[in-house]
Write a protein that binds this DNA or RNA. Sequence first.
DNA 1: TTGAAAGCGCTAACAG
DNA 2: CTGTTAGCGCTTTCAA
Lengths: 337, 337
Amino acid sequence: MTDTTRSRQRPTLDQVAALSGVSPKTVSRVINGERYVSEQTASRVLAAAKELGFRRNGMARDLQAGARSSVIGFITGDVANPFYARLARGAELVLRRRGYQLLTASSDEDVDRERELVADLVERRVAGLLIASADDDHTLLRRERDFGTPVVFMDRAPADIDGDAVVIDNRGGIESAVQHLVAAGHRRIGLVGDLSRLRTQRERIEGFEHAMVAAGITDWDRWVRVDSHDQAAASAAVRDLLSGEEPPTALVTTNNRISVGAVRAVHDLDRAVTIVGFDDFDLADVLGVTVVGYDQERMGGLAAERLLGRIDGTAPAAFATDSVPTHLIVRMRKTAP
Amino acid sequence: MTDTTRSRQRPTLDQVAALSGVSPKTVSRVINGERYVSEQTASRVLAAAKELGFRRNGMARDLQAGARSSVIGFITGDVANPFYARLARGAELVLRRRGYQLLTASSDEDVDRERELVADLVERRVAGLLIASADDDHTLLRRERDFGTPVVFMDRAPADIDGDAVVIDNRGGIESAVQHLVAAGHRRIGLVGDLSRLRTQRERIEGFEHAMVAAGITDWDRWVRVDSHDQAAASAAVRDLLSGEEPPTALVTTNNRISVGAVRAVHDLDRAVTIVGFDDFDLADVLGVTVVGYDQERMGGLAAERLLGRIDGTAPAAFATDSVPTHLIVRMRKTAP
DNA sequence: TTGAAAGCGCTAACAG
DNA sequence: CTGTTAGCGCTTTCAA
């Protein structure tokens, strides 16, 4: 039994021209809705295009002198991480109105892979790049930018080069978390963190130190555990912290994955430990976990807007870093009646 | 203060050829690592390419007779939904090894927007399409497929056309959920569902009916509430269900968003209602929510593999639907000591 | 091992 | 209002 509808060739603009008896340029005009085409011609062309199933070849179209594709590269550690997924969503909502699509790629927070992805996307001539970079060295990105691919850094601002960035107020956020715990009477406050080579993580740890010292707690580093990159590692770190002598009575967790791992560990151990997490997460309200929240979709949207500004040159020449404010969302654990 | 590193033009292959004193074709050979180039020439070309910051123009490259780009279109309702995000992740892991990238786009479950996206991606000459379609009418997709863009349906198999698909065993999953509840002594079992125009949702509802009737519960539709598309709507539906006379003692929720909304409502009302959800979700273990689970990343990976098979023609001619098995993950609510 | 010529599918620039 | 010419940046013949 053979498939009768087997792949015809996709028709080209020239074939539409041939069928409708006009020149290719005229077909082009009709397809792109340009003016100065008679209605008759237009409808004849449209009919032919429809009959043949014509779809303009976007690659050929974009291959105009120096033209770039209407695709934006979006590089993060992992698209499946809800934080990055929401950034993508926010960016998409802004970009779609301008006809751009997102080409998403995950680096697994691996520096080499990230560089490969940048090179790959640049070869595809993306119109711009939104990136949550895991790399400390951005000379490659600067070079690509100098050759005309605008870049906006999300979440992690580059330390070694100038650049546009949209970041979170990490220090302020963590400080409000610590202050909240101190006000509630906690002194032994622990911190569980993700990869400390990431700048955001370092900022959060610094914010922690600063707030602890400001509260008169100088041995703050007793209860610090960093470099947990997944939920399981975070759980293990929490178990470790809680099994020592004089365990912390409260924990600050520095991102959503860490928070979830910590909540799980505390729950499994059945300990009364207060957790305040950076990033809001699903069901934190039900679990009564206080968090440092901020608008993730908006953050993605801001990055996208900045990038669009660069693409069409309407952004001011100087690079700028937008800081998204955080706010503490205080929650209580429901006590049994 | 002026930016001194302002956008030079990105060099073309011809410029590399000029600088290294060879023909464009030779540069092309070197760049693509073809054989039959002397080592001397190769290194000279490479040096010139590096110096100029050359990056092959992928659009021009792909614009060979009928060639397609090495991009795969990925259309779902919302990239920020963890379910879709994990499908994307699974697909990405398979596709990256073959040099493909994902172009992700969200339809918001809107039929018109989905069609626009399909048209757009086809214009970009994606090598294939992975889609969780919200549409009942797939004649457009069939047409595009006939013109050479392979399509694999994820999660929702098309009812009106033949096609490759990777779906979940919806009926079986829901039936195991109901059986679990019945075995635990529940009779008044409710169901809270998402948009009933989606086929997967209908299948889950049918599975519910079937299992309820099999358990001798014929007035199963008393406690059915469908068409809740977000967490808030799901919460409202649950509140409604629980406020009536003879409220259900257990609820089946038909996807992750509904589950979270239901958990929240039950928690807010402080009612002892058992929830069994379709789709596993973060912290379900901590909350003691039993779920119908399955491997989401694998599902995305399977879809990607099927698509690759179509792209290089190694897949058998006949369309096929893979069904991903579900398994019940039974969890207990931790009782206070 | 290298190069010259032609062309992928479309559109800009210029005529008519 | 419509058509002609040329060319985007690369790769494919086919020769040398």
